[in-house]
Write a protein that binds this DNA or RNA. Structure first.
Length: 368
DNA sequence: CTGTTACCGAAGACA
DNA sequence: TGTCTTCGGTAACA
């Protein structure tokens, strides 16, 4: 999508009176759209106090009542916490991670997780998940009446425990995903990540080395968000949500990105627009069937690839989702061998590519 | 060692 | 555009 330069221009000069060219019209529309996508401060306040209240109580309950959850940690991930959530603060991802260290390997019988070990020393996901789910359920039942409008949803193929909470302030429903994860701190990331995460020219070699020292997480989560370690129900997928969050925070190439007066990069804004475009297309009943295999993680991955290949901030100006779609090929940013579009049919990829090109050629009519 | 606090950055609100 | 505010993250502190 080739709008960021224009948009940046527009951001800087929006107040200057200029004759209305086509570009200005488009710039204004995109700026107005970005405004529209902003989350209201009051709604954010409402939702976050609700979410924080509930998650705090759930984690205390887990720590106190489940022996292997003693050291459980909270990791807030996903678009809300990356400041790229659009429209409404209605989806929260909270990972509950259990540190898994070398102690488990050396002294498997003494470790709190030892009862979940399979014969081949892998960890049974299904048993852990069902205990986790039951414990979260108990915690929710203990919540005060004020939060009684809370229920647990089971989404098909989604092992996360999802709470749906109806807020009394405005009657809106928010969902909180509790994701059970194993935090693995090793010397390096698994081999299949070797050729991924190419951020050298974007954020630098030093930064990459830094990030690679971070742990990685094994989670049971959505299809298409990671790489399956095992097949069947006992599947753990590797997750780099924490790294995604961090590099989105340090979005710019130069250390002073967004600090200089008068210069504002727009990666996040572009991602929001692309997500909104996908959302709008998904909500269109006549198109939703063809759109079912696409999700916002595709948009995010596209942004990461674009940032990584463009290098310096000023040169960053296209997000070539369309190219990925034409080839039906969008590698996971961290695991290049994993194609995120493998489940989308060539015809639906072409369909979306056409839709995006149509919007590009028609001043994003869908936004107005 | 653990829980609290204080500070800082991001971003929305508003004059 | 600059300032104020809230939330989230973290490091220092008790």
């Amino acid at each position: 999508l080739q709008y960021s330069d224009r948009q940046k221009n527009c951001a800087e000069k929006a107040t200057a009176m200029r004759g209305l060219s086509i570009d200005d019209t488009l710039g204004k529309l995109l700026m107005a759209t970005i405004d529209k996508l902003k989350i209201k401060k009051s709604e954010r306040s409402n939702a976050s106090s609700c979410v924080n209240n509930i998650t705090a109580k759930v984690v205390t309950h887990l720590k106190q009542n489940v022996n292997w959850c003693k050291d459980i940690e909270r990791l807030r991930t996903g678009s809300y916490y990356e400041n790229v959530k659009i429209c409404e603060p209605d989806e929260f991802d909270v990972m509950r991670s259990i540190p898994v260290d070398v102690a488990l390997k050396r002294h498997p019988n003494k470790h709190a997780l030892h009862r979940f070990l399979n014969e081949d020393k892998t960890i049974q996901a299904s048993e852990m998940l069902s205990e986790f789910r039951d414990a979260v359920k108990e915690a929710v039942q203990k919540l005060p009446c004020r939060s009684k409008q809370t229920c647990i949803k089971k989404k098909p193929r989604c092992p996360a425990v999802t709470l749906e909470v109806k807020m009394e302030e405005n009657g809106k429903t928010i969902s909180i995903d509790f994701v059970l994860g194993l935090k693995v701190h090793r010397a390096s990331w698994p081999d299949f990540t070797k050729d991924g995460f190419k951020i050298e020219t974007w954020l630098g070699k030093k930064e990459k080395a830094n990030m690679k020292h971070r742990p990685f997480y094994l989670v049971s989560k959505y299809e298409g968000k990671g790489h399956a370690e095992h097949d069947g129900t006992d599947a753990w997928r590797i997750s780099f949500s924490h790294v995604e969050k961090e590099i989105l925070k340090r979005h710019g190439h130069s250390k002073t990105c967004c600090e200089d007066v008068g210069y504002k990069c727009c990666q996040k804004e572009c991602l929001k627009l692309l997500k909104y475009l996908l959302q709008q297309l998904k909500e269109d009943d006549s198109k939703s069937r063809k759109m079912s295999k696409f999700c916002s993680y595709h948009a995010k991955t596209t942004l990461l690839h674009a940032c990584a290949t463009r290098g310096t901030d000023s040169k960053w100006h296209t997000v070539n989702f369309v190219q990925h779609l034409r080839k039906c090929h969008l590698p996971n940013f961290f695991i290049p061998s994993h194609n995120l579009l493998r489940q989308a049919s060539p015809s639906s990829c072409d369909f979306l590519a056409n839709e995006i090109e149509f919007q590009l050629n028609n001043n994003f009519l869908i936004f107005s």
